[in-house]
Amino acid sequence: MSGISQIRASFIRSMRIFLRDKAIIGSSIMMPVFFLIVLPIVFFQHVPMEFMPALRGFLVVAMITLLIMSTAISNLPGSIAADRDHDLYSKLSSMPVNPVYECLGRVVTVFVFSAIGSLMVIVLGLTMGAELIVTSFDLLLIVGLASVIILCSSGVGLLIAGVVKSESAAAHVGVAIVMFIYFIGIAFPYSDLPELLRPFVHVNPICLGSNMIAVLTVGEELVGYNPFNFTDVSVMLLLTSLLFIIGLYVYSRNCWRR
């Protein structure tokens, strides 16, 4: 009972902060929305019309992944670092509060905030002509895969929060990592990536999850390969679990003082 109450308290608090902080809204939701509108105008001018719906669909998936990463890898550690700066963890450490429950509340925030942002991106994408063909079973699978991306990104975010102490540094490190992952495995279809960068996609759960969602929604042809194989799925699940557990451990150990 007390664990649930701690998760809920932490979730409500950080959700309020995420929804009220203009910097978080701007970087997590407005940036993908902006790219969703602008990128087709800039890059898709010479694309044949028949490919446009699928390409826009791919862009929707990429923007959702960017949104999740930005929330979990940049804004989550940024908000944790801000709380650290303000000595919140000294206060929490003096209370009968379990760091794991408090942390889970923050991760639930990332889930809910990402879900709200993703819905906005999907609605906007569909309005702009994106084609996302999914069955009910696929939808469940997509939610599961998005959850894996959120868990993995949160793990990375918690690791950053545990290691980088200042608010601005934590957010900047997060942005750098987000950009790195985005341009190497998410922004462009796998088939368009240089040979040199392709192995990176196979060891990055976020890229794997994003590609799997893209295969389910816009088809294997556009992505350029099928990531639904034993190795990729195993690597994705294993690394996600590992990153999340390590992130949780580092956060509980370094941010909390007991």
């Binding site: 009972m1 007390s2 701690q6 308290a9 608090r13 009220r20 700066d85 000595d87 919140l88 209370m95």
Partner: peptide, 22 residues
């Protein structure tokens, strides 16, 4: 340091700690 969140109201901050205490 001032540990209460600037983004929350005074009442919301108190609810946060009350909920944490269960």
């Amino acid at each position: 340091e001032n540990f209460c969140s600037d983004f929350l109201t005074g009442r919301e901050n108190l609810w946060y700690f009350a909920d944490l205490l269960g």
